[in-house]
Amino acid sequence: MKPKVLVIRTAGTNCDKETEFAFSSAGANTTLRHINYIKQKDELSDYQIICIPGGFSYGDDLGAGKILALEFICWFKNSLKKFVAQGGLILGICNGFQVLVKTGILPDLDFKQKVTLTNNDSGRFEDRWVYLKIRNQKSEIRNQKREIESVWLEGLPEVFNLPVAHGEGKFYAERSILDKIEVSGQVALRYVDQNSQPKGYPFNPNGSLNNIAGITDASGRILGLMPHPERCIFRHHSPFWKEREVYPWGLKFFANAISYFK
C-alpha cells in the first residue's frame, strides 16, 4: 500500500504541483486539495502525511502564513491533533513552515505561537542555494532516551545543498524559547558554509538566530523548514550539475516519509 499524502493549497500557494510531484515520484499516493474543499469535508484522518507547501498564501497579507495559520486553528485544530496522535507526519516547506510556527504546531503542537519567521536581515526576497547541516548538537534527550532523529532526515549527509527562496525566513524567538528548542534537540537543519561551519550572510541567507533553517517537534515527525527539498529532486536542479557529481538530496526527504510507512 502506498502511503497517502495530502498536499494542501489555498489562494497564493505556488509550490503545490512540484511538491505533489516530488511525493509521487518518491512512491506516494498524493492528493492535492484546496483548503476550501477540506473545510467542506474534513478528511485529514484519511491520510498518513500532510504537507503544506511553499508560496504566498493570501499574498502574505498580514504577514507570511498568517491568514492560513488562522484558518488551520479555526477549522482543523482538533483534527490535526488527532492526525498527529494517530502517528501521521507533517511537513511544512517555506510558507508551510511559516504556517506551522504561526499556528503553534511547531515547536510543541500546543497551538501557541512561540517562535516566528520574520523579514530577512537583507530586507528583501532572495532565491539562492545554501549549505545545510543536519542537527549536530547532542541533546540531553538524545543522550538519555532514544535517538529522536527525525524520520524526515534519515540518511542525509552531514552537509548538503538545497535552495531557499523567501523574504521572511529569519528564525526568531526569545532567548529562553530558543534555548529550550536547542536543548531538546529540535533544531533539524542549520545554515553553514561549505566546510560545515556557521558563517554569516550569504551562507545564512536571512539572519536566522543560531543559523536555524528548520525545526521538528519533539517526536521528529513534524518538520518545518525554509529550504525547498522539492526543488532538488533532479540532478539538473543543482547549480553545479555540469561541473561535478551531484545528488538530488531533496528527494530523500520525500522518500524517507514514504519508507516510514512501509
Partner: peptide, 17 residues
C-alpha cells in the same frame, strides 16, 4: 524566485557566495 515550479535546468545567474 527563479526556481519555483522546479523546472530549472540552467540558471542564468547562480553561485552560492
Amino acid at each position: 524566485d527563479h526556481e519555483v515550479q522546479a523546472g530549472s535546468v540552467i540558471k542564468s545567474i547562480y553561485g552560492i557566495s
